[in-house]
């Protein structure tokens, strides 16, 4: 029983670490590239920045965060049930897409590969969030439900009404918050 609790905690911490690493890398990359403007440039523009350190930070942040989110997704799929388990599976796919976002930047080929994996990441993360919200609601986990609802509604509104650049920023922030909250929930899962 104790080993199961420790196992789920590790997977939860992976989500927290992933969200933290991406946030820090993003902030440092933006600070390093003065030409990046919030609302005008997408986050992916950092991947093809003229400032090499910003481009490298974006690339490796995507890859490392993708690996950590994949670990988190595996933990979610193993330790949670029903809709939350399904959410974990979609999180794994989204995480693999995130790794691909880092590997295939906007300058790769004609940019379609990057666009494709980026859309896969956002789509599968949205599905994972819906499933986790549904699962948490029925398991009466109120705070994770609330955070998922807020993050999903704000992200959906941003996608529907804002420019691509601003929407991407808002949605990524919502995803990071959602992932961190789910990571805390998984880490505190009782055996």
């Amino acid at each position: 029983m104790n080993s199961r609790k420790i196992g789920s905690a590790g997977f939860g911490i992976a989500a927290l670490l992933g969200a933290f690493i991406f946030s820090v890398a993003w902030i440092i990359a933006v600070c390093g590239d003065a030409s990046w403007v919030l609302g005008e440039n997408t986050i992916s523009d950092l991947g093809v920045s003229d400032v090499q350190i910003s481009a490298d930070l974006f690339k490796y942040a995507c890859i490392i965060t993708g690996v950590l989110f994949a670990i988190f997704g595996i933990g979610k799929a193993i330790f949670e049930k029903k809709a939350n388990c399904a959410s974990g599976i979609f999180t794994i796919i989204a995480a693999l897409a995130l790794i691909a976002v880092g590997v295939y930047n906007k300058d790769f080929g004609n940019g379609n590969a990057h666009l494709f994996v980026a859309y896969i990441f956002f789509l599968f993360t949205a599905i994972a969030a819906i499933l986790s919200g549904y699962g948490d609601y029925h398991e009466k986990k109120t705070i994770p439900t609330a955070i998922t609802v807020v993050a999903f509604v704000v992200g959906l509104f941003a996608y529907a009404t804002c420019s691509l650049a601003l929407a991407e920023v808002v949605i990524v922030v919502c995803i990071l918050i959602w992932a961190a909250a789910q990571g805390v929930k998984l880490a505190m899962e009782k055996a």
Partner: peptide
């Protein structure tokens, strides 16, 4: 009971929106 938190969360979400 569990729906109450969803409605409160929606209030926060729409405020952010």
């Amino acid at each position: 009971g569990s729906t109450m938190v969803v409605l409160s969360a929606l209030a926060v979400a729409f405020t952010l929106v």
